[in-house]
Design a protein around this nucleic acid. Structure first.
Lengths: 199, 199, 199, 199
DNA sequence: CATGAATGAGACTTCATTCAT
DNA sequence: CATGAATGAAGTCTCATTCAT
């Protein structure tokens, strides 16, 4: 009835996070119950509430921490000094690598926005905007110095992100194409999209 | 708007369909209850079962009929005889027009696939493949006659569809850009993506 | 899974009301669960919600209908025309008879006020005030015509009601004293309390 | 304020007692959780169990200690030697003063009896009987020496206690009437009730 | 002596679905 | 073809209580 021997708070919280992520990604937030999450990690449903005050907060937590990790990873790439063309290539490769490797984790941030309550939605939205801004800055830089030929950088930003993220719908690690080959294909296509002369 | 075999064609059934489509699109299949649907059209939940045997079947019905309408509309465009370049432009304009105008209704076919039971999933998947095949055929035709420069038409098909469908995430009929302007932007970008020389 | 043969809405609702009344009286609103109520009348807990939207509403319903019946019964006594002394005796006898015979039903209206949400509380409170007003009017009439000697009719009203209602705490239909004897005792005591000369 | 045998005398235990008393009085035993009590004194629910073995025991503890304090306070009034009339007046004043000043704390001893388990109920009941006996003795003394005219001292005892305790339902320290005025009113009314000639 | 994590039960309420009327 | 009442399961969350730390 009490703490299991050896159980530690952060470990359980992490297991909840991982399991919830997986299940939310697989079946959707609304279709997954707290009981289901708990069952998978051999816990009573009520115990989850020692770590997350509500199911909604658990979702928010997942999305926030995903976006923050994503932003941190992108910042770590350090492309700021690069010429626009190289920076764009770096972004494409980064986004594909990150989103195919995080696998399902990524899925839900695009999927479950409608299940967020107002305030949580705005927070996540802000983080997503910040990430998109990274790409948009590169595009605008390239337009300014003549590297790219783009009519509307905002629209192109969203078009490219949609195009790239779509990969998660069909990518399989053991599929016909390796990640490297996929990266090359997308670099090629996107170079065309933005009117880049050579890559 | 052809009615599918086996579905009941009453006024009530149609109202259920419309309401369910809207609510599923807005909140997700799992988050919408039969009671909610019924309430919106001043009905008791039980009455829905006079028209649809289960909630799952209602979702299937919606997705099938959406895909069939989409395919019929695309066939009606009659682009088969056109040169690949013109056909691609036609596809881009068609897809954008159809998906922005159907509004939310379209959303769910990409969203709710995971809530379909095996058999239903396969049926919808087949219809989606058929639609994608329309684009892929154009791309392959253009590759064959030298109009496009594309490394992997299958990947490009999926990249373009993702890019185009992404528009539904931000398009607002009273937004900064008119649908015509958006179409022009995407025709421009996609021409670059497939290496088309002039448009 | 559907309606039981012969089941009728109002009958079930009434059975719920009766059972809830009994259980709330016996154990208190907070200590009684919807399941307990349902179990006693061979129903699933969820079915109660076909008749009452919430547990709180069920309590409110009980209290309102108790107070309304009480007021109606008192009005039916038709004491308005009587001299104050006789009217007071009528009130005492009525209150004792009604409250001992309704038995537990009465208990909760004094007990569960704190479990009512603001708005419901105010509604019940208003009904109780109306009932108390009946007694207060008699007292004031008697003061005006010299029948009673009372310093503060408002305080006396509440004192008498508390004194009378207290009977429900110990009255047993098979106890040492018959209801008639109890009535006589209280008429005697209360006559003294209000300074009435003879009864 | 004597501490009962077996109870722990720490500061924390006292804070628990005070808080529980207040919350039980306000919302009722069943409606108050151990967590709520703990939260109010910046404690974890588990910590309460270092001081009280169960919630039930905590309630019992509260009621017992309330009744013991009440009895001790009454004994301290030292009315045994007084003539019945004066003793009754003393009782009335004492009861009103004690019950209005302890405020809500008193409420629960009349309210939560039904939430006591058998054995605890009997213990509290015995204490209450002892207190009532104090009044009944006075009444019987007064009947014996002709000071009072009372038909049934047992019933009158309960009637008077109910009447007096009812004050806690409406008394406000900043209300229309001061405690002194209220005492005077009740002394007056009760003198009438028991047929006392002059006060 | 307090914390924090856990249990197992159970709270209110809603769900998809059924079916007598 | 709709209603309204029902089932049985399950939803989120809270409860009293326990106990390793």
């Amino acid at each position: 009835m009490a703490r299991k021997v050896g159980s530690v708070g952060t470990e359980t919280a992490d297991k909840v996070r991982q399991t919830a992520l997986l299940l939310f990604a697989r079946h959707g937030y609304a279709a997954v119950s707290m009981r289901q999450i708990a069952r998978q990690i051999d816990l009573q449903a009520g115990a989850i509430y020692n770590h997350f005050p509500t199911k909604q907060q658990l979702l928010r937590d997942l999305l926030v921490s995903h976006m923050e990790r994503l932003l941190a990873a992108w910042d770590a790439e350090g492309v700021e000094g690069l010429p626009a063309g190289e920076a764009l290539v770096a972004f494409v490769r980064f986004h594909l690598r990150y989103h195919t490797q995080c696998g399902e984790e990524v899925f839900i941030s695009y999927m479950e926005l409608r299940n967020l309550e107002e305030e949580n939605f705005l927070d996540i939205e802000a983080l997503r905007k910040r990430y998109e801004k990274g790409l948009q800055d590169i595009l605008e830089r390239g337009v300014a110095d003549g590297t790219f030929r783009i009519s509307d950088p905002r629209v192109t930003t969203m078009a490219l992100i949609a195009m790239l993220t779509g990969v998660t719908n069909w990518y399989r690690s053991n599929g016909r194409l390796s990640l490297g080959e996929i990266e090359a294909l997308y670099v090629g296509m996107i170079s065309g999209t933005v009117g880049l002369k050579e890559v």
